[in-house]
Design a protein around this nucleic acid. Structure first.
Lengths: 204, 204, 204, 204
DNA sequence: GGCTAATCGAGACGGTACGTCTGGTCTTGCG
DNA sequence: CGCAAGACCAGACGTACCGTCTCGATTAGCC
C-alpha cells in the first residue's frame, strides 16, 4: 500500500563509469609529474587514460577541474605530514617543517607544487578551494600545537597560530616555486627565530 | 689600439626598431593586467602592438622572454619600494613591509604577481632570473637595515638577513597568489613577532 | 473469428513494438521533407520519434535501411501514378508523364526524390532495391500500354518498352535533382517526339 | 615619371600556394573515386594532400566548394566528349552518345558521376553551377549538330535541341546512379528511336 | 642620391590542441 | 526481454594559435 515507487527511485539509466574517472585522474597525476600543468592536454589525457575526449568534457569541463579532483582525492606529498606532538614545541616544529620541506624538495613534490601554483594563478576560484583543502590541515596542526604550548606556558598568549602556519606554507611554496628547496640550515634558522619570537617571556 | 673600424666591419645596416620593441613590451604589460599571463598570445600581442609576428620572433623567441624584458625594464609595483631608514628598526620594517603588501594588493599588483608566478612555474630558468632581479634589491635593503641594527646593538649578531627578506617575499607572493592581501593586522603581527625573534639579548 | 491468441504462440517473448517502428518511419519521412537525407541523423530521428537510439540500431543498422523501409511502406508521390488507359496512346502517355512530373515538382516530391537519389548514390545495394521497387510499376504500366498500342497497330513492333520507361524515369529524376521541374511544354515536346519515334509507319 | 605607385599595386604578403591548392583538388578527386562524396572528410583531405586543415578552411569553407573547383578545373570523364561532326547525323549522335556512355561506365566515371549527383542533391546552389558547367558544352554540341541537320534538311524544324541534350544527359546520369551502364543495344535503340522522332517529313 | 642589406608589415604555411557534435556500442533499471 | 535513457569510445568538425616561411616595401648608413 504505502507502495514502492518512492520518488527517490529515480531513473539511473547508466551510472558514471568509476573506472574511466579514475583513469583520467591517474593520467592527470602522471602527466603533472611528467611535464607540468601547462604541458597537460585534454587530448593527451584522454589518450593515456584510454578514454574519449567527450567523456572528459562530460564530467569536468576544464583542465583545472580535473586537477582539482585529482588533488582532492589523492594524497599530496608534503601536505599530509602528520607529526606526533611531543612535549617540546621546538622539536615538534622542527620535525614538522623539516618534513614539509623535504616533501616539497623531492621532484614529484616540486612538480606538484608548481602545478598547484600555476592553476591557482590561472583559476582563482579553484585555487582558493585547493589552498583551503591543503592548508587547512596544516593550520589545524599548528593551531593545536601552539595551543598546547600556550597551555604549557611556553608560548605567549598573543601569538596568531594561523599567521605562523601561513608563514611556513608561504615559505615552502616559494621555495618550490623558484626550485630552491629550503636548506636544513634555513629551516633551523627559521624555527629558532620563530621560537624566540613567540616564547612566553619575551618583550614587549 | 690603432683603429677599430676596418672596412669589413660593415655592421649595422639597419638598427632594430626601438619603437616596435617598446610597443611589444607595452602590449605585454597591458595584456598581463587584462587577462593574465596564460591568456597572452603572441598573435594578440603582435596585433595590439601593430607589429608583425615575425618581428616578435626575430627578437624574443618566446612569450616568457618578452615578459622578462618587460619586467626588467618597467617598474614593478610592490618591488621597487624604497623606504628611508630611520633609527628605529621596527618603524622601518613596518613601513617597508606595509608598502610592499599594499603594492601587491592593488589590482595591477596582483595581476603582475600572478603573471610572475605563472611564468616562474612554467619556465624555471627565466623564473630564476626574474626572481633574482626582483628579490635582490629587497634582500639588499633588508641586509643593510639589519646590519645597521646590529651595529646599533638592537639586533642579535646571528640573524640571517637573507632569510628574513625571503620570508617577507614569500609571504607577500603567497598572499597575491591566493588573492587575499595581507591585512594590516597580519603585517603588524608579523613584524612584531620578527622583531622579538631577532632582538639582541633574546635567548638562546 | 473466435479469435486467435492460442497459448502455443508464446514463442516470441515480446514482439517488436509496432508503435516504435512506425514512429521511426514517420520521423524519417518528416525529416526527409524537412532537410534532406544527409541532414537526417539517427539521434534526431530517435528524439523526434520518442524512441531510444538502441531501438533503432537493434532493428535497422543504418540510416539507409530506415529510408528503404519508409519508402517501401509509404506512398511515393509521382511514382504511384495510376492512369487509366484509353484507346489513344498519346493521350495516355501525356496524362501519365504529366502526372509524374507534377508529382515530382511539388516540394515534398522534390525532397523525396533527392533523398532517394542521395541514398542511391551512397548505398548502392539499397539504391537498386529502391529503384526496382519504384520503377517496376512504371515499367509495367508502360509495357502494358505499349503492348496495347502494338496490338492496335499504332506502335512499331520493335520498340523497347523498358527503354521508354527508363527514359521517362531518368528525365523526371534529373529534373528533380537539379530542381527544375519539367515544364508542360517540355513534357509535350517529349511525348510528341516519342510518339513520332515509335509510330507504326515510320522508317526505317 | 607619371607615377609609380598605382593604387592597385597592393600588398601581396605571400601569394597563395598553387601547389597546396592543386594538392587539395587532386586529393579530392582521388577521394571521390575511392569512396564517394559523403565519405570524403576535410581531415582526410588535408592529410592525403599534405596540407593543414587551416589552409583548406582558409580558401574553401566547405567540402562542396572544393568539389566544385576540382570539377571545374579537372576533366570529367564522359562530359568532355568532343566528337567530330560528319555529314551523317545518325553516325554523329551514335558516336557521341556511345562515348559519353562509355565514359560514365568506367569505374572512375561512375564514382565521379555519383559524387556529382550526391553533391547536387545536398547543395542545390553548387549543383546548379556544376550542372551548368558540365551540361552546357553538351547542349552546345547537340544544338550545333541539330542545326546542321536542320540546314541539311534531315531534321524537322520544330525540334528542341536542348530537350534532346537533356534527355541524353538524364539517361546517362541515371544509368551511372543505379550503377547499370547503358548497354550498346540500349544506346542504339535510343539513337534510332530519336532519329525517327526528329526526322524531317515525319508526321505530325 | 644611389646602393646595400637587414628591417618592417603582412599573412600563408604545416601543425597541435581546442571544445563540440554525431555515430554506433554498451549498460542500466523499469515494465 | 523490449525499451528509454544515456554513458561510453571513436573520430570529424571548424577555430585559435603556434612557430616558420616568404613576400614587397622601408629605411639607415656607406659610397
Amino acid at each position: 500500500m504505502f507502495q514502492c515507487t518512492p520518488e527517490y527511485a529515480r531513473k539511473v539509466p547508466r551510472p558514471r563509469s568509476e573506472k574511466a574517472r579514475q583513469s583520467v585522474l591517474d593520467a592527470m597525476r602522471a602527466a603533472l609529474s611528467a611535464g607540468g600543468y601547462e604541458a597537460v592536454t585534454i587530448e593527451g589525457l584522454a589518450e593515456s587514460a584510454g578514454v574519449s575526449k567527450q567523456t572528459i568534457y562530460r564530467w569536468w569541463g576544464s583542465k583545472a577541474a580535473i586537477l582539482g579532483e585529482a588533488l582532492v582525492e589523492g594524497s599530496v606529498p608534503g601536505a599530509d605530514v602528520a607529526v606526533p606532538m611531543t612535549s617540546d614545541l621546538g622539536v615538534d616544529l622542527r620535525a614538522w617543517f623539516s618534513a614539509m620541506s623535504a616533501g616539497l624538495a623531492r621532484p614529484e613534490g616540486v612538480a606538484l607544487a608548481r602545478a598547484l601554483i600555476e592553476v591557482t594563478a590561472a583559476d582563482h576560484a579553484l585555487g582558493l578551494v585547493l589552498n583551503e583543502r591543503l592548508a587547512a590541515p596544516i593550520r589545524e596542526w599548528v593551531t593545536e600545537r601552539v595551543a598546547r604550548g600556550r597551555a604549557a606556558g611556553d608560548v605567549r598568549s598573543d601569538v596568531d597560530a594561523a599567521a605562523i602556519a601561513d608563514q611556513f606554507i608561504a615559505m615552502a611554496s616559494y621555495a618550490a616555486l623558484i626550485g630552491q628547496p629550503l636548506s636544513p640550515e634555513r629551516v633551523e634558522e627559521t624555527v629558532v627565530r620563530l621560537l624566540r619570537g613567540i616564547a612566553a617571556g619575551s618583550r614587549p
